[in-house]
């Protein structure tokens, strides 16, 4: 509130109300609506990958299952839990802003970011394992003599498994990239919260950033069973 722009605004008290909006409510609705639309484009962005996944999983089910089995599902499950916890801390941060609990809001924002970093750390371990096992698509890729779970004694076709790993790395990689962007957004939110920008009346950026974070969580909720848990029961 210490901004010098307060004086310019005249009767409106909120420096965050932009000139072309009539009311704060209009501005808030526009922002969250815009974010939801953006998330719609994100759905379609990942949608192309899901389409590719669906087709090749149907074609090469056994190879996909063998490749999926080589990923550490426990790490993936842990990461799911980590993201779910981070989603909880996001809503708690917003609730804290709504009820003027500044310390709680800051703590929850920090916690959200820590969960985000933990997710990326675990992801890093997973990637390192794949790298060590030569499961990263490329010249040194190797997936020889890996049994197909549903047909013991038959080996997976390395070329088809490579498609799985290509999709695995692109899908989780783009998801991780979204996490990194989310961490950037939350660093800014933390800074703004520290500066005292958010009040019970005005905390739209927190809500918008939260929407994004939850969406990234939802993507992972689908990625986890689709990539880690193909034909695991054998």
């Amino acid at each position: 509130m210490s901004d010098s722009t307060v004086a310019v605004q005249g009767e409106t008290h909120n420096p965050a109300l932009l000139h072309h909006f009539a009311t704060e409510e209009q501005q808030r609705n526009a922002s969250s609506f815009g974010m939801w639309i953006f998330l719609g484009t994100e759905v379609m962005f990942f949608g192309g990958l899901f389409c590719a996944y669906l087709i090749y999983r149907g074609w090469y089910f056994g190879d996909f299952a063998a490749a999926s089995k080589s990923i550490n599902a426990a790490l993936g499950g842990t990461n799911t839990a980590v993201l779910i916890c981070s989603s909880l801390t996001v809503v708690l941060a917003i609730w804290a802003a709504q009820t003027s609990r500044r310390a709680l809001m800051l703590a929850m924002l920090v916690l959200t970011m820590l969960f985000g970093l933990a997710f990326l750390g675990i992801k890093g371990i997973e990637y390192r394992d794949k790298f060590v096992e030569h499961h990263v698509p490329g010249p040194s890729f190797s997936f020889e003599h890996e049994e197909i779970p549903s047909h013991p004694g038959e080996y997976a076709n390395p070329r088809h498994a490579e498609i799985f790993f290509a999709l695995y790395f692109i899908m989780t990689g783009l998801h991780a990239l979204h996490m990194v962007v989310g961490l950037g957004i939350f660093s800014w939110l933390l800074w703004a919260a520290w500066k005292g920008r958010f009040t019970p009346e005005y905390h739209t950026p927190l809500e918008i950033g939260g929407l994004y974070w939850h969406f990234v969580d939802i993507v992972w909720i689908y990625l986890f069973p689709l990539l880690y848990l193909i034909d695991r029961h054998r």
Binding site: G77, T80, I84, S87, F224, R232, H233
Partner: peptide, 15 residues
């Protein structure tokens, strides 16, 4: 949500 995550994991182990 946490319960659902566990459920997914164990449902995948069932045939």
């Amino acid at each position: 949500l946490l319960f659902g995550t566990g459920l997914t994991y164990y449902a995948a182990k069932l045939d």
